[in-house]
Design a protein around this nucleic acid. Structure first.
Lengths: 123, 123
DNA sequence: TTTATGATTCTATCATTATGGAAATATAGA
DNA sequence: TCTATATTTCCATAATGATAGAATCATAAA
């Protein structure tokens, strides 16, 4: 994961409403929730929620799919996996081997990907 | 880890200069670096760096200690551990057991703490 | 004490982000 | 079509964050 991408994801999560949205979606993974349901559950005005959903989408943390008049938003687990991988790769001294590689594996199928992700190419 | 604390840490890291500072300090853990050295290596004006260091300190991501005229800044690994733990605890469906708990253990001594941290008390 | 150096605070300015009402767009049922 | 509902975009405003020069504070050596 690139530096800039990490910053984008961190910034997307570093906001109360957005973090709440993301966590709510996590609770409803993998189907997700319609925007209206999110707005109701979190008590957010439509316009405000839409703004934050756009941020989350732009950061790649959520995906959306249309179903009739509803647009369902769902979390993109792999983005979180990548972020955790990035933080893990940079959270400790690289010279000394003091850091046991923490493996982020939020879904069973992702383990191979997580193992692949961790490269010595520290950007 | 509390919601608000996570947001504070995420926000602290979600900025190019601050992330660069943190990563630089990680490379020089555990002693850390003097502010002047950081400023020189990253090409940041003193005042700007000081501003960012304050943010990082406030978020608990770095600590400082004075040594003569120098103030050394060092990363607080546990804060990163806690963040990774927080993200791990909330990155996947809580109902289904789809998420193998990822263990963040950036220093050997932290493993017990990491195991303790993971509580079902999802705030 | 004087001088030099390291670091922070003060201050002003600029840039970005957040908020939410109102209008516009999109889909589906009557 | 008309109507209702879901969602987004537009827009103005407010709030927060970033930048960096200049002044200030702190430490230590001369």
């Amino acid at each position: 994961m690139q530096n800039k991408q990490a910053i984008t994801i961190l910034a997307a999560l570093a906001q109360e409403s957005r973090l709440a949205v993301y966590r709510l979606l996590i609770e409803h993974a993998p189907e997700g929730l319609a925007a209206s349901a999110i707005a109701e559950k979190l008590g957010l005005p439509n316009a405000t929620l839409s703004f934050h959903l756009k941020e989350l989408s732009h950061a790649g943390l959520v995906s959306s799919r249309q179903s009739g008049r509803f647009i369902y938003y769902a979390p993109v687990i792999e983005a979180m996996n990548d972020l955790i991988g990035y933080l893990t790769d940079h959270c400790c001294s690289q010279s000394a081997g003091t850091c046991s590689t923490a493996t982020a594996k939020c879904t069973p199928g992702k383990r191979a990907a997580a193992a692949t992700r961790r490269r010595p190419t520290s950007a």
